[in-house]
């Protein structure tokens, strides 16, 4: 165990824990976009910056990747931190002017679009945090999507920008996306769902008669877990 100070509060934490996790455990809010409990942190959105003082050195660090240490003094809302965070958000906002989530966040933090950062017009809402790609690979285990190209052309897509054969239509990528870039559309009746340009047929729950999951996803789960497909024909609420 190590003792440290976050925002003038004395806190005890386990060695090796990251600042962000310790702060959250103690009810201290640090804004983030690319942080989720189910995937490892990578520090790509840079919004979680804090000021960490160790000895005589004070540095701006990404709290999601910076381990706590004995005697560390962390400030999550100092003027310097807020300046960096506002700049990061302004840049993200200029890249993704269409993202509602980012606009909301900017309003909360009192950040206005900076005129010298010309907004991108090609309708991207993607901050390239790679959360969707990693979720598809690590959590779902199908790796249906990935990044393509690099630099200004870099984007997230299925291989060859075609309908993916490996995609199971689970929608985990759309769920995890912090900026609403990935679109998943479900028809009014709920019988099909479209994601990444492919339309998936949904399965009806045997008990309540509602559409609850794509057939491909149930097949995948059945293969992966060995549970017979017939046993998966009932939705979670009816099970």
């Amino acid at each position: 165990m190590v003792n440290l100070t976050i925002d003038n509060r004395k806190i005890e934490a386990e060695a090796g824990q990251f600042i962000l996790d310790v702060a959250r455990e103690n009810g201290i809010v640090i804004p983030t976009l690319c942080s989720h409990e189910s995937i490892e942190p990578t520090g790509s959105c840079r919004l979680c910056v804090v000021e960490a003082r160790q000895g005589k050195k004070t540095r701006i660090v990404t709290s999601c990747l910076y381990p706590v240490a004995k005697g560390m003094i962390v400030d999550t809302r100092s003027e310097r931190v807020m300046n960096v965070r506002r700049l990061v958000l302004q840049l993200l906002l200029a890249r993704c002017p269409g993202s509602e989530q980012l606009k909301e966040m900017a309003a909360e933090m009192g950040v206005e679009a900076e005129p010298r950062f010309v907004p991108d017009t090609d309708n991207v809402k993607c901050i390239l945090c790679r959360m969707c790609v990693r979720t598809c690979e690590k959590v779902v285990g199908v790796s249906a999507i990935g990044f393509s190209y690099r630099g200004p052309e870099k984007n997230v897509c299925t291989p060859f920008k075609e309908e993916s054969e490996t995609c199971i239509g689970c929608g985990a990528c759309a769920y995890i996306c912090p900026t609403g870039h990935i679109e998943m559309e479900t028809t009014e009746t709920g019988d099909t769902r479209t994601i990444w340009g492919r339309t998936f047929k949904m399965k009806i729950c045997k008990v309540c008669g509602r559409y609850f999951a794509p057939e491909d996803q149930l097949v995948y789960i059945s293969q992966k877990t060995g549970v017979p497909i017939e046993d998966l024909a009932v939705c979670i609420s009816c099970r």
Binding site: V133, C136, E137, V142, S143, A144, I145, G146, F147, S148, Y149, R150, T158, P159, F160, S164, T166
Partner: peptide, 25 residues
């Protein structure tokens, strides 16, 4: 060619999305 990349992906057991990432990078 696309089918060659799919073959590489299958024989190396690297997902095609990852191969495509490398090729376009």
């Amino acid at each position: 060619p696309k089918d060659v990349l799919c073959a590489v992906s299958a024989h190396l057991s690297v997902p095609i999305s990852r191969v495509y990432e490398v090729v376009t990078f």
